[in-house]
């Protein structure tokens, strides 16, 4: 996580996710956690739909998806720190609400299937994170733009 948060000032042509004030360290950590939750939920969804992934490298899938999610979300929201902060915290709240809802639905539909309940919570958390993040970004009034990046991530592709 620390590695992901380290500012990577690479090439100007890279895809860049910038966190600007007031979305700073705590906001950045929340973004990474929410991104990891969304990525894990995506892998869980795939695994449950398939009946089980036939790979043993699901951990790598998660980390790859986390990195892509964090950079993608950061890039999409860059340039407006207040909007970033709102979207990131809305994603976190959404993931918690989604996890609770998924757990409840999993308990109702998969009685006695503990793995199914955990998967339902993960999938719910991922859906909640995405829904919360989108809602937080779209419902922002547009004010609070800043030009000073406090943290940035970059992928050279």
């Amino acid at each position: 996580m620390i590695v992901v948060l380290v500012a990577l000032q690479v090439l100007p042509s890279t895809t860049r996710a910038q966190l600007s004030e007031p979305c700073a360290a705590a906001c950045g950590v929340t973004l990474v956690v929410a991104g990891a939750v969304a990525a894990t939920g995506a892998v869980a969804t795939l695994g449950r739909l398939e009946g089980g992934l036939s790979t043993t490298s699901e951990g790598l899938w998660v980390w790859g998806a986390t990195f892509a999610t964090v950079v993608g979300a950061g890039a999409a929201l860059s340039g407006n720190g207040a909007r970033q902060e709102r979207a990131v915290y809305a994603a976190a709240i959404g993931s918690l609400a989604g996890a609770a809802l998924g757990l409840a639905l999993g308990a109702v539909t998969d009685s006695g299937d503990r793995a199914g309940s955990v998967a339902a919570a993960l999938i719910g958390a991922a859906a909640g994170a995405v829904a919360g993040g989108v809602y937080g970004a779209l419902s922002h009034d547009g004010g609070g733009a800043t030009l000073t990046p406090s943290l940035s991530l970059a992928v050279p592709f």
């Binding site: 990891a36 939750v37 894990t40 892998v43 869980a44 795939l46 695994g47 449950r48 398939e50 009946g51 089980g52 992934l53 036939s54 790979t55 043993t56 699901e58 951990g59 998660v62 299937d113 503990r114 793995a115 199914g116 955990v118 998967a119 919570a121 993960l122």
Partner: peptide
């Protein structure tokens, strides 16, 4: 922690909790 949850959720077909294994 998230890998722990992933192992618990039966995502991998080699785990007893996966749908194919439990079937």
């Amino acid at each position: 922690f998230l890998y722990y949850l992933l192992k618990k959720s039966g995502v991998n077909v080699q785990d007893l909790g996966s749908r194919r294994y439990s079937a």
